[in-house]
Amino acid sequence: MRPVHIAGFAQLPHGLVDNRHDEGGMVRAVTAAALQEAGLGRDDVGFTCSGSSDYIMGRPFSFVMALDGIGAWPPIRESHVEMDGAWALYEAWVRLQHGDVDVALVYCFGKSSLGDVEAIYALQNDPYTIAPLGLDPMTAAALQARQLIARGLLTEREIAETVVNARRNGQSNAEVPAIETRSVEQLLAQPLVRDPLRAHDAARFTDGAAAIVLTVGGGGPRIAGIDHRIDSMNLGVRDLTLCNSARIAAERAGAHNIDAAELYVPYASQEKLLCAAMGLDPGVQINPSGGTLVAETPMVAGLVRIGEAARLIRSGAKRTLAHATAGPCLQQNLVCVLEEAP
């Protein structure tokens, strides 16, 4: 494998509502900043890959206008995934293995404020059987949490502790909207909305965009391993107390000796399960940025985890892990392990 480094990372400050930027404006801001951090210009880029969702943006072909933001002229080698930007980074990483291209630009954007993200995700279910029932992702997560609690693998207090930690960590993250710290007792006093889950257990949706510049060689945090896997969407055939896809992806990405991890946690009840599935030791620092419970920009939050994990390397960590997910109950998972450049 050719050594691929994260040479630049930028994100728009995630806002609860972004009324200023359209797709092109968002993308311009983050790609210019990421290239600047990498010390590269857009002419240096040999492959570009983006991630976004038409349903999130409320219109078909939403990625087309985003191309304005990168100035695709002269024409560029380019591809797009209808997935989180973390998967766009995966495609770029694959493309860099070919040998003819040494710099790749990855970007993604999403605006949760335009529509009802939970209602959109509910439509991801099997359209013939489950979707007509209106199963929303939080209800699916609650079914999973219930099983975890019943098996003694999770307590309601642990769910609350996850939220407490995320909010505490989020205080020092200038890129996310302010969020109030809470004690476990305060959280547990809140009403249940999808028993055993409370409103604050869900990730907080935001608007934003992010970009990463990948280079072959050079400095910066290096991708030690990256892999992604999917489970069945059929909740009935899965053991929801396990997360096989995250386990396999972590094994293949080399999730060992990890100092800190940035995990895409849609619901607080899923963090402990993810750590167990990926074999993360109790000493691993989880979501120093505050993570998705503080700011989840759809289609962006996964790439931001990789960017944040890279920042941790830059500030002294030896080996970090980033995770992205999609689908109900952590159906699809991507794991990217980063390490110091040798």
């Binding site: 404006g25 311009r28 210019a32 933001g69 990168i70």
Partner: peptide, 11 residues
């Protein structure tokens, strides 16, 4: 008008 030029990516 465009926020960014489609060919130059300039504001």
């Amino acid at each position: 008008p465009r926020p960014a030029c489609p060919t130059c990516a300039a504001l």
